[in-house]
Nucleic acid binder design. Structure first.
Lengths: 239, 239
DNA sequence: CGGTGTGTTGACAGCCATCAAGAGCCGTGG
DNA sequence: CCACGGCTCTTGATGGCTGTCAACACACCG
């Protein structure tokens, strides 16, 4: 059940059999949530962290006027709530974007890991650093490029991240997000998300049908997005 | 020379004398840079990480049209380049916003720390998680609030972070950034930064004179900014 | 069959980027 | 000493990207 996480970590460095076993045995239970259900709330002090086994999750912050900003989209294999192990008090919420299954690891197990497995600790640390690299990229897109470019970038990124754990089907990924949710992620209005998607479709760059997103013109899309996967740290090397 | 970092960490948890000594002795050398000088470049593979001793630094990404997005502003006591210890290849640059002094710690020392000092390792990990929490906050500001509110938020945040390490003088902080640099940080044009600052000044919220920024109306500013310091994780507790 | 959620499109408005020009300040060099 | 260039700050005019409001189509579901 932790195989996708292991696969994700092994893209970045070799894990020993012992380390993999430690990971596999540290998860205590799993749980399923419905789409839209919150499973971590701002102000919570969780005693366990959760890993996405299946489905999509969003990390988000609310703003007083009723708006919402999704700061990260998490897919299967993402250790979505590893942050709470050290941050203790949540400064944001996490909710399901689709029906989702997650696995929980008690913080006490994570602490034991950090006591006994330094390299594994570094790999989990790395995992959160890659999350941070994605934040930097989103900030750059939000600050310095157009809505169309941002949307194209998000599609490229999600395709890259899903391919990495075997969740793409060639040029197609399954992406069950509404346009309102895409807007919350990109900081755009729902109406403008619709316009931007139409532009990408009419430009022959992507096809978007029933949650199935197909990239039709890679060069064109990556050009609009100015996408380069360097920030995803996909190289395997000693860490 | 690492006292500000130690102070910053001790705001979040108790450090043993041994841990403090380990930190103090792991830094190998210091270096000074002029304002505007880059000291880490995209694509670099540093063999050491650097801590800001004095001055201001910016983490930034360039975009193809010549634009720049500053993704983080770092102050004295910030372990600005701890990321490179595990990310290996830099996906962004770091440059001096003012004359700056930094201290370098070889990655081999950091690795030894992670082998022998699990709690200290967690504290450094925490340090990068707080950077990530700041990214989330910036994303939320950028995505869901006005330019004026973003600027007010940045002022509140920098005052809070500088106070934490003793770098504020009551309601005043020293902030040697040009309006162009503020624009790069907030994703705004220089012209609009100027207009927004005028608005904050004329509203009696802040005074900005010769790099000295004084908050005149805390309630007003925090209200415009919708600022709450929760995300900075200033509570001391076992980590 | 009506209600709800989602996608779609048009009209209009507003925030912010861009372009342009001038003022103040500072260091440099004649 | 003064002229000059460069950088920063400031302000106005204009335009475009994106938000808001509104309406309708469609699918799904009780």
């Amino acid at each position: 059940m932790t195989e996708l996480l292991i696969r994700k970590l092994e893209q970045r460095d070799v894990l020993s059999d012992e380390e993999k076993d430690v990971l596999r045995h540290s998860f205590a239970r799993t749980h399923a949530y419905r789409a839209r259900e919150d499973f971590v709330r701002e102000g919570d002090r969780p005693k366990e962290s959760c890993l996405v086994l299946e489905g999509f999750a969003a990390r988000y912050k609310l703003v007083p006027d009723g708006g919402r900003q999704i700061t990260a989209i998490h897919i299967a294999g993402d250790f979505v709530d590893l942050h709470s192990f050290l941050l203790k008090t949540m400064d944001h919420g996490v909710s399901a974007l689709s029906p989702i299954r997650v696995a929980y690891v008690p913080h006490s197990n994570l602490e034991r890991m950090t006591q006994n497995y330094p390299h594994l600790t570094r790999m989990l640390w790395l995992n959160t650093l890659i999350d941070a690299a994605i934040y930097r990229q989103w900030l750059t897109c939000k600050g310095r490029s157009s809505a169309t470019s941002q949307m194209a970038h998000l599609i490229c990124e999600l395709h890259a991240r899903m391919s990495e754990v075997g969740l793409s089907d060639g040029d197609t990924i399954h992406l069950p997000l509404t346009q309102a949710e895409l807007g919350d992620a990109l900081g755009l209005s729902t109406v403008h998300v619709n316009r931007v998607l139409r532009e990408l479709r009419h430009g022959g760059l992507v096809k978007w049908h029933q949650n199935a997103v197909t990239i039709l013109d890679w060069d064109g899309l990556m050009n609009v997005a100015d996408f380069s996967p360097l920030y995803l740290n996909l190289q395997r090397e000693p860490r």
